[in-house]
Design a binder for these strands. Structure first.
Lengths: 170, 170
DNA sequence: ACCATAAGTTCTATTTTAGAACTGTCAATA
DNA sequence: TATTGACAGTTCTAAAATAGAACTTATGGT
C-alpha cells in the first residue's frame, strides 16, 4: 500500500494515522506540547536525524498541525507552533501517555505527573461519553455506518459473519 | 536511534509508541476492535502483506496486547484477541478516530457513527479530568517530574529556558 | 579573520517494507 | 485416490525509508 492512499481511505482512523501514525511524528508532537519549538531543540532532545526532522516538520505543517512563525529576520528563522488542529491532538497524546503510565512503567514509577490547574490536583485522563458523561469502554459502544461509509466492506463475508455472531453473543 | 531503545526510555509516550506507534499496528488494532480475529481476515481487510502482518501480530502478542486462542485442533489454528491490556487501548483508538472525524473527513461526512449502548445516543468521546470531571486542554495542565523521571533532561538548557519563559508568559 | 548559532540539505550505508510466490496441514469433494 | 480449497504462515527480490555523518548558507560577535 502506498501511504498517500491512507489519506483517502473512508476511515477516520486511517486518515489520522496518515498524519501522526509514525514514531517520529508522535515524539515530535510530545515535544511541541512540552513547548519545544525550534529545529535544533527538537533535534537535540529527540536524537532524530536532521534529515527526518526536516521531513516530518514539513509534513506536519502541510497537514496544518504546525505553523511556522518567524522569530527573527536576518537570517530568517522560524519556530514551529501548534495550530488549533494540532492542539486538538492533546487527547490522543494524553491517552497514549496514560496507557504507558498504566502498562509500561518500570519499578521506578511514572516519568511525569500531570496537574490540572483548574482543580489543582494530580489527575489521570478519563474518556467519557459526550451525551451521558459515563466512562467509555469498547463493549458498550455500537458502531454504525455513517454518511461517508464505503458501500461495501472489503472484509470477507465469512469474516463479517463471524464478527456479527461474536457481536450478538456478547 | 534503534527502536528497541524506545521501550527503555523514561517516557510513557515513547514506551507506548514502541508498541503501537506504527501505521500497521494501529490499523490492525482498529480491526481488532471491529472484531476481526483471524490472519486471513486481517490480511484481506487491510491489504497488508502477509509478511508484515505476521511480524506485527507477533509483536502485539509479545507485548501482551493480543493473545492467541486456539479455535480448532487439526490443523492447529489460532485467533488473535485483545487482552485487557489491549482493550485498554480503546481511548487511544477513539481519540484518534474522533480527531479524524473533526479534522479529516471529506464532504461526504463521517465513515462511522458511534452509539453508546448505555444511554442509547450517538456520541463523541470527551477527555476529562479524573478528579474534577472537567474537559481537559493542554493549557490547563501542568507537568511535573515523577518518580521515574530522568535526572537531567537531554534538552538543551537554552531550550528549557525558552520553554519555561513561554510557560510563564502564558 | 575566525568562531559560533541556526536551519536546513546532501551523501552513502543499512534497515524496513512491498509484492508476489511458496510451504505445510487438514477437510471436503470428484 | 487424486484434487481442490481453506488457513496460517515463510521465503524471496526489489523498492523505499531511515541512520549517521558531513556539508551549506547567512549572520553576528571577538
Amino acid at each position: 500500500m502506498k501511504w498517500d492512499a491512507l489519506e483517502e481511505e473512508p476511515c477516520s482512523l486511517a486518515r489520522t494515522v496518515a498524519v501522526i501514525g509514525d514514531r517520529w511524528s508522535l515524539l515530535i508532537l510530545r515535544e511541541c506540547f512540552l513547548r519545544i519549538r525550534r529545529f535544533d531543540d527538537f533535534q537535540a532532545s529527540l536524537g532524530i536525524t536532521r534529515h527526518l526532522l526536516a521531513d516530518r516538520l514539513k509534513k506536519l505543517v502541510r497537514f496544518g498541525v504546525l505553523r511556522k512563525i518567524p522569530y527573527q529576520d536576518a537570517p530568517k528563522r522560524y519556530e514551529y507552533i501548534l495550530t488549533q488542529k494540532g492542539l486538538d491532538l492533546y487527547p490522543i497524546i494524553m491517552s497514549i501517555v496514560h496507557w504507558g503510565n498504566i502498562h509500561m512503567v518500570d519499578a521506578r514509577g511514572r516519568p511525569l505527573l500531570h496537574e490540572h490547574k483548574t482543580c489543582g490536583k494530580m489527575f489521570d485522563p478519563v474518556m467519557v461519553c459526550s451525551e451521558c458523561g459515563e466512562p467509555l469502554s469498547a463493549k458498550h459502544v455500537h458502531v454504525h455506518p455513517g454518511p461517508g461509509a464505503r458501500k461495501s466492506s472489503p472484509v470477507h463475508a465469512s469474516a463479517r459473519e463471524r464478527a456479527k455472531r461474536a457481536a450478538e453473543s456478547s
